[in-house]
Computed example of a mutant assay.
Amino acid sequence: MAYIEFSGVEKRYGNFQAVSRFDLTVEKGEMIALLGPSGCGKTTTLRMLAGFVPVSAGTMRVDGRDITREPPYRRNMGMVFQGYALFPHMTVARNIAFGLEMRGVPASEITARVIEALDRVRLHDFAERLPRQLSGGQQQRVALARAMAINPDVLLLDEPLSALDARLRHEVRAEIRQLQRATGLTTLIVTHDQDEALSMADRLVVMSKGCIEQIGSPADLYERPCNRFVADFMGRSNFLGGKLDGDGRFLTDHGVALNFDGAIPNDASTLSFRPERTRLVAPDALGASATDGSTNTLAGTIVSFAYLGPVIECQVQVDDGPTVMALLTNTVDPARLGMHEGSRIGVQWSRRDTTLLA
């Protein structure tokens, strides 16, 4: 039996449907990421589970117990808010102890649990500091320690890394994932950052306009998106409009027939491929594609190069078609290969890396 179960959960504000028919099961010990753009309903869903927002319809269960109408203090959930919500006048230790005090835990036990929580997040030496004396990453770990000190059944994280800079965000997300795995704590995290979701979660729930678009593992959603929204949200993709032809290929709007593998969705009208799965070939090699149809090729003209550190982004204007992107490793020197803006070029990728979308 699933540990957490959402069944037909909805949230309406007047005529506005913030969350619609949300159905999800979460296994004990799983880390689930609710992922989507701003306003998609992910934070509302998390707050309904926490009990801060009442549901308009549907039920929620934790370990078989219906919690739909229970107040937050009876749900035994730890929550880390986007802004951490630390008490500025309390020390780190007092912040962590606060939830335990509100639950009437004996003072001797509170001391032991605060020490344990501080050790978990490696902040034992900071117990007597105030929040303003800590870095952003340290404040985030205090908020995490406070949420975990109450021994919650479920840990809820609402955009916990959004206030951190890029380097610190990378470090802290690894710490959270390691801590979650070590404790086996069932966790739901809300984020709009697909890198964050891919690196931390066992499964992702991609949402749009209050609805679930797709649920699956990070690899499932990245490699096999169910529609254009998911493919576009989960990293960068190239999209070509068109339709299926009578020979089992995809005919683009600009008249190029391309091969693909995998399922054919109803009303397939878009073909996609990832920029990092492409390679650039010289004009004299454009006619040398594999005769068995294992490789797709588009001819075009280089529009621009952009150096992005680990990769070089190349924009190519396809003949009579759209602009597509290719990503090259930074070990490649385009100039040494005779590639420059205005050069004729071919963009190639495998049919295995080609996906049809509704």
Rank of each mutant, 00 (worst) to 15 (best):
R122Y: 13
S135A: 06
R146Y: 07
R129D: 08
F126V: 04
Q139A: 04
P88H: 09
G136E: 07
R120Q: 15
A117H: 03
G137L: 12
L123W: 07
G104K: 13
R120D: 11
R129F: 07
R122I: 11
A112L: 11
S135F: 15
Q139V: 01
D153F: 10
A145H: 05
R103Y: 08
E116M: 03
N95E: 07
G137S: 10
F98E: 02
R141D: 00
R129A: 12
E109M: 00
I110N: 08
H124Y: 07
A107K: 15
M148K: 02
R146E: 03
F126C: 01
F98A: 02
A143I: 05
P131A: 00
V114S: 12
T91G: 14
P131V: 00
P88D: 12
L134F: 11
V142M: 04
E116I: 01
V121L: 11
Q139G: 02
R120E: 13
Q133M: 05
E116N: 10
H124R: 09
A117T: 02
V121F: 04
H89W: 11
M148C: 08
L144I: 00
R122N: 12
N151C: 03
L144H: 01
A117M: 05
Q138Y: 05
I150G: 02
T111H: 11
V92M: 07
A149G: 03
R129K: 13
A147S: 12
R129C: 08
R94K: 14
A127F: 09
Q133F: 06
M102E: 14
L134D: 12
R103H: 06
F87G: 00
F98Q: 04
H89C: 08
S108T: 06
P106R: 03
G99W: 11
L118V: 06
